[in-house]
C-alpha cells in the first residue's frame, strides 16, 4: 500500500526526467507560481466591475473552474502507477501524501475526518501563501486577498476527486497565513 510514485518522477511539469540542477528546478517552480499569480490578477481584474457583487466580494468561480479542469486531468498522470483505491479514505490519503507533494513539494500536515464524508486537510505552510507572511511576522496583512490564491487549489482538489469518482464541495479556511485548511465535503446522492 505504500506510495510507489516518487517526487522526482512526477513534478508539476509532468516530466519524468531526473532534475538537472537546482536552478532549473527553481525555474519550474517559479513558472507555476508566476503564471498562477497572473491568471489570478486577470480573473480578479476582469470580474471587478461585476455589479452583482456586494462590497468586498469577489467572483472567483472562474479560477475555481480552471483548477477543476487541471485537477481532473492531472489525476490521470499521477495515478498511472497506482493500483485501484480501496475506499474513499484511501483516496484522500493519496491526495494528502503523493498528490500534494507532487504539486506543492510537501505533504499535507494534518488530516481529520468525521468518517461521514467530511475531511479537513491542513497544510501548515501552503506553498502559494508562504511568500506572504509567516509565524514571526504580521499574519493578518494579506488575509483579505488570500481567497484569490486559494480558489485555484480548491478547484484542483475538487476536480481530482471528481475524476476519482467522488463529487464534493471544497472550501478553504485561513486564519493565520501560511496555514491553510481545506474542507472537503463529499456529496452523497
Amino acid at each position: 500500500m505504500k506510495p510507489q510514485v516518487t517526487d522526482s518522477k512526477t513534478n508539476i511539469a509532468g516530466s519524468s526526467v531526473i532534475p538537472l540542477t537546482t536552478v532549473s528546478n527553481e525555474a519550474n517552480e517559479c513558472l507555476f507560481e508566476y503564471l498562477h499569480a497572473e491568471i489570478m490578477n486577470y480573473v480578479v481584474g476582469k470580474n471587478s466591475n461585476d455589479s452583482n457583487l456586494k462590497e468586498g466580494e469577489e467572483n472567483l468561480s472562474e479560477l475555481e473552474w480552471m483548477g477543476f479542469g487541471v485537477g481532473y486531468r492531472i489525476i490521470e498522470r499521477l495515478t498511472r502507477e497506482w493500483v485501484r483505491f480501496k475506499d474513499e479514505l484511501d483516496m484522500i490519503k493519496f491526495i494528502c501524501t503523493d498528490y500534494w507533494s507532487s504539486l506543492y513539494q510537501k505533504q499535507i500536515d494534518n488530516l481529520k475526518t468525521n468518517h461521514h464524508g467530511t475531511y479537513v486537510l491542513q497544510d501548515n505552510e501552503f506553498r502559494l501563501l508562504k511568500h506572504l507572511a509567516n509565524n514571526t511576522s504580521n499574519n493578518k496583512q494579506y488575509l483579505r486577498e488570500c481567497p484569490r490564491l486559494i480558489s485555484f487549489t480548491c478547484g484542483l482538489l475538487r476536480g481530482s476527486l471528481a475524476n476519482l469518482g467522488i463529487s464534493s464541495i471544497v472550501k478553504a479556511e485561513i486564519t493565520l497565513i501560511p496555514t491553510c485548511k481545506f474542507h472537503v465535503e463529499v456529496q452523497r446522492v
Partner: peptide, 19 residues
C-alpha cells in the same frame, strides 16, 4: 517578487520582507 500582492517599483509594504 514571489508575492503577487507586492507591486514592483513601489515602496515595499510586506511585513514578512521587513522581518
Amino acid at each position: 517578487v514571489k508575492n503577487p500582492f507586492c507591486k514592483l517599483n513601489e515602496p515595499i509594504q510586506s511585513e514578512l520582507f521587513k522581518t
